[in-house]
Design a protein around this nucleic acid. Structure first.
Lengths: 346, 346
DNA sequence: CAACATATGGCAACTTCTTGCCGGGCCCGT
DNA sequence: ACGGGCCCGGCAAGAAGTTGCCATATGTTG
């Protein structure tokens, strides 16, 4: 036990001990202390044990800055998300964080508020400190992304940028599942409520929906774009009320929920008059009434896969730039979809 | 314009330039380069301009690690939250991040998954790299917190730890507002659905509810504790069904929402049979049916205030350890509360 | 017992940047 | 004309680690 009594009225600011202090206290040289911690086996077991004990008594902790400087490894990863409060990103963040922690890495999470300017600034700030980058829902241009990817290993999420490794959900099968589900219920006319035009995912969803209906009977039309938020959903709902339609497939759950609320608020019944499907299965999709049927993706896996790949690259693996890594999707059936019951009330 | 053509098939790994490279290219000494960037005015304006131009052409960026080492300023703050996916924390995170960014600081966000072990580990890992710490909803003991607070300036949120600056919401007035609202509606019997025992906030809410009803007519009882989650709410709802009660005030919105769902699912009507009030006004409170009446707190402000105080301390201000900083609360009226309509159906 | 291999600790150089101090040139006052 | 201050650039010593290389001591082999 160390005497912690310090009578002076300056309680803070006792500089933390360095390997030099430990070295002196243990009667060895600084390099030996360094090795005792970072190069086990390189130093005699007893000496190492002794050093560790002394270090512990002194309250020594290695200074990660000083350590990183010579070895060029900060053990930090940047995770840049467009909106940290969008439920869509939660599990991605968790997955990334878990995978990173497991490997001894710390993740630097940055919320860019859907702004490509803020995104670039954040990158500017954090990039020099991290070994790799995960870009979730980036709002930057492909070319900016590619330039950045030259500086550090990078993985982009929910987007495909040629030349940069990416992780995406299986939109194709997701779209098909949604259509199949609705057709089983007897629907054969669909409306896709589009999200932001800048969204790669939005483009793909629309494409795949068309592909999934091509040739066969059912038809899908598209309205939008709308901001991918509750408010956007309300706007979309208004548009829908003016021009009723068959079943609705929305760009994401937020949009779907906002839209349902608007419709229900004006006397329409879901799913009796209108079936609604969203994407993502965010927190909230099970809360609304009726519960939202949605295409779920293993977002946690998206995050952990991304970090896993990043770490592999840092350990010398070749980046997977050819084809994106695809994670599967599944359909969560809730109450917002139901059998086709004739044309919706006007 | 620099010729960027490099024919070799090793596109990565061109070590980034240092002040030495810039110094050589500009024909000055490294220290001058350093000063040109970090000490404006100390060096001749023309020289500085020249250096900056050369640096830019070389693609030089200062290495924050190397910079931090001598000056002992990393420009990073740690924000440790018990659960980053709990909507309660969103605005706190945003507020903190904004305030930090504005001051040129980066925040290192860590999610501890409600585990005090993970929390200690995270702190262990990040503490040496940051200049200050914000602890939101810490699960650690008071004494552990106090020990940690000795190592770095710290602010705790939603909790009062003597000797450590803290920011809390005005629970007292919040509780009073909830009670007043319900009494205006004719209620005079209340049940507090308690959250985790370890929660400082929970204790305070219960205390203030009792204080708000003391002496006057209405009575408040307490059931719990329950985990502060949707599932916890379901459990609480079951308990409530067995022993019906007057109006319900829940520890937080998650609990309130889970509880409403359970009750409504079993034929009770909210608010006709039972009024429900939550705390926090999380995303989701406006989504459920009926919308949840809740005591809101300016969470964004909590986060930014915390960081603001931390930065002040880092700049030499005395930490505010006497009384906690209190931010006001307000009541958001939605549809989950209604006039007293006799005793609830059994 | 000589020759060689291995284990272990130390020296010093290195990572990138900051900063106290020094000194040469220049201006100014007397 | 000369001493005293600025201005501004450079030198070198840190900041806290890592690591290549060398020097022992010890062990092993022929």
């Amino acid at each position: 036990m160390s005497g912690e009594v310090c009578g002076n009225d300056d309680p803070v600011e006792r500089r933390s001990p360095t390997i030099y202090d430990v070295a002196e206290a243990a009667g060895v040289s600084p390099s030996t202390v360094s090795r005792a911690f970072s190069r086990p086996g390189r130093v005699n077991a007893e000496t190492a044990e002794h050093i560790r004990r002394v270090a512990h008594d002194l309250g020594y902790r290695v200074n990660p800055l000083a350590r990183s400087l010579p070895v060029e490894r900060t053990s930090m990863l940047a995770l840049v998300v467009a909106d940290a409060t969008n439920p869509f990103h939660f599990e991605i963040i968790r997955g990334a964080q878990d995978a990173a922690t497991k490997a001894g890495y710390t993740v630097l999470l940055t919320d860019t508020r859907e702004s490509d300017l803020l995104e670039r600034q954040a990158l500017e700030r954090t990039l020099p400190m991290v070994e790799g980058i995960v870009l979730a829902s980036s709002r930057m241009s492909d070319s900016t992304i590619r330039v950045t990817a030259k500086q550090r290993p990078m993985v982009v999420l929910n987007r495909v940028v040629t030349g940069v490794p990416s992780v995406v959900t299986d939109i194709s099968s997701g779209a098909r599942r949604a259509i199949d589900h609705l057709r089983e219920l007897g629907h054969d006319r669909f409306t896709y409520v589009a999200g932001p035009e800048a969204s790669w995912t939005d483009g793909m969803r629309w494409r795949e929906l068309r592909a999934a209906t091509r040739g066969t009977g059912p038809k899908v039309r598209r309205i939008g774009p709308f901001p991918p938020t509750l408010e956007g959903g309300v706007t979309a709902g208004r548009a829908l009320r003016r021009a009723p339609t068959g079943a609705v497939i929305a760009y994401n759950d937020l949009l779907a929920i906002g839209l349902m609320g608007e419709l229900i608020g004006h006397g329409h019944r879901v799913p009796d008059d209108l079936s609604v499907i969203g994407f993502d299965d965010i927190f909230g999709a099970q809360l609304v009434t009726p519960g939202l049927t949605t295409v779920a993706a293993p977002l946690y896996q998206v995050g952990s896969t991304a970090v896993g790949h990043l770490l592999a690259v840092l350990n010398g693996a070749r980046p997977q730039t050819e084809a994106p890594l695809v994670v599967p999707t599944s359909l969560i059936r809730r109450r917002s979809t139901g059998p086709y019951g004739g044309d919706p009330v006007k």
